[in-house]
């Protein structure tokens, strides 16, 4: 009997020899990684290391300085406009500030991709949008406009809009950005719930260490203009490198995460 090796996980997004920058200035270089089907892949790092620029590069919005990007095996920067839009219909993107269309209600925002990208009738579109809103606990606010939403709600609506077309891969820029600990934890739970319910993959860009270590299957840590670490949360935590310790605020094995430590300090006098 010949040995049967387990099939390699299918790669949804991949970068090789990637460098990002503006003009001659390089923000980060030498990036090599793949995002496998079904995984939650977190891109971590401090502010300004190029996390969001990397996300924009992955989704075809910011060409890399050097190197190659592949989304479902295709280079988004080599495709004509129509093919690029078709490729993007296979992904969902939730932006940091929500990026909801101000003139539309929550429900209309979520319906929009279905209205313009499918030939479904109005009633079916409404049902599908309501399903996603229900999944993200947003059914009660579907009549509100973006200006009436809190930051956390806007992020959740943005996530609902990102998944309404049942994408294979969802990009989420800073889910915890600007949120309190409780709202950030709720969003983490929703990401895990969506992955389980829809069997989609996530690329999450975050600076929140405990959030990334809670939800991610693999973590890419960006610092000092390069990939400082790439692996499972356990592997990254165990690296023990001094720079990792500095980056994480000494969040090695057995140490308290920065947010927990902060809360400890905050409640110490109570």
């Amino acid at each position: 009997m010949p040995d049967r090796a387990a099939p390699a996980p299918e790669s949804l997004a991949a970068v090789t020899g990637l460098a990002l920058g503006f003009g001659d200035r390089r923000i980060v270089e030498g990036l090599e990684f793949e995002v496998a089907r079904g995984e939650i892949f977190a891109i971590m790092g401090a502010s300004g290391v190029g996390k969001s620029t990397l996300l924009r590069t992955l989704i075809g919005l910011a060409p890399p300085a050097t190197g190659a990007v592949a989304l479902f095996g295709q280079d988004p920067y080599a495709l004509p406009a129509a093919a690029l839009y078709a490729l993007r219909r296979r992904i969902g993107v939730a932006f940091q500030g929500g990026a909801l269309l101000n003139a539309l209600t929550v429900l209309e925002n979520v319906e929009l991709p279905l209205k313009l990208n499918t030939r479904l009738d109005r009633a079916t579109i409404r049902i599908m949008a309501h399903l996603k809103l229900e999944l993200l606990n947003l059914r009660e606010i579907d009549h509100l406009y973006p200006s009436q939403l809190s930051g956390g709600m806007a992020k959740r609506v943005s996530l609902a809009r990102a998944v309404v077309m049942d994408p294979e891969l969802v990009f989420f820029d800073e889910p915890a950005g600007g949120l309190d600990a409780r709202n950030a934890a709720e969003l983490d739970e929703l990401i895990l719930k969506l992955r389980a319910a829809m069997n989609c993959s996530f690329v999450v860009v975050t600076h929140a260490l405990d959030s990334a270590f809670t939800i991610a299957d693999r973590v890419l840590v960006l610092a000092e203009g390069r990939a400082l670490a790439l692996g499972t949360p356990q592997e990254v935590r165990a690296l023990g490198d001094e720079r990792m310790a500095a980056l994480f605020g000494q969040t090695g094995a057995g140490q308290r995460a920065p947010r927990a430590a902060y809360l400890d300090r905050l409640t110490a006098g109570l």
Binding site: L61, Y85, L101, R161
Partner: peptide, 10 residues
Amino acid sequence: QIDALACMGI
């Protein structure tokens, strides 16, 4: 918002 539209395939 313009980037978001492009990412929706619109």
